[in-house]
Write a protein that binds this DNA or RNA. Structure first.
Lengths: 106, 106
DNA sequence: TATTATCGTTCACCAATTGAACGCAGCATA
DNA sequence: TATGCTGCGTTCAATTGGTGAACGATAATA
């Protein structure tokens, strides 16, 4: 399934590196090739990216995954939501760490 | 599967509340009853806890899940490892937040 | 005794994920 | 030209992980 997390991560990777293979993307995000393929299809389906045929200078022949205007919008929105989420996680983590420190003392 | 995270969380709950039902444990850890049952079995298998028959004052008839000496040791070790892990996560999170802030600016 | 409530256990079912296998395209070498 | 190699996207059978309804057992209660 395509969670917010992977939607964000994939859009981010593609934005800064549109010519990237699905295999490479899988490595970077530490997920399987199948999942990458599935997520990309979903993103195309939603109109957030489009895949253009593309011949690399080397022996590659693949796609260029470009963010559509809608994709760019979505990515901004996701980034903001992500920041908020991470701030909450940060706060929770500090409490957890404090609790662990207390526990280690015992 | 029994991850470090759940090994830690379960040992912690059991230590401070040995008479607890699997259902209650499932609620607290927000996992299914089946998973709790599976994890408890695994912990018993590893000799980290033992289940003693136990008659509650109320109408309950269940087990008392007691940490073995080995279980207590393991829990201390897990706690320390967990603290270390959380400190790393904390650091990573701060970087991520900083990065997100930069990104939001753009 | 019959009923109710809670216990641990089980397991068929579902959803998510994996990665080997495939066909295709481009390049390099014989 | 033909052959082999590499990397591409795509597919899908197989595995894994998680779920919770259902079950039998036990103890309190009516």
């Amino acid at each position: 399934m395509l969670t917010d997390e992977y939607r964000y991560k994939i859009l981010k990777e593609l934005q800064q590196d549109p010519d990237i293979s699905q295999r490479e993307l899988a490595k970077r995000l530490d997920i399987s090739l199948g999942k990458v393929n599935f997520c990309l299809k979903a993103l195309i389906e939603k109109g957030l990216i489009k895949a253009e045929n593309f011949k690399n200078s080397t022996n590659k022949m693949g796609y260029l995954y470009l963010l559509t205007p809608k994709g760019i919008e979505e990515k901004v929105s996701l980034t903001q939501r992500f920041l908020q989420r991470k701030l909450k996680e940060h706060e929770a983590l500090e409490k957890e760490i404090e609790q662990l420190r207390q526990e280690v003392k015992t």
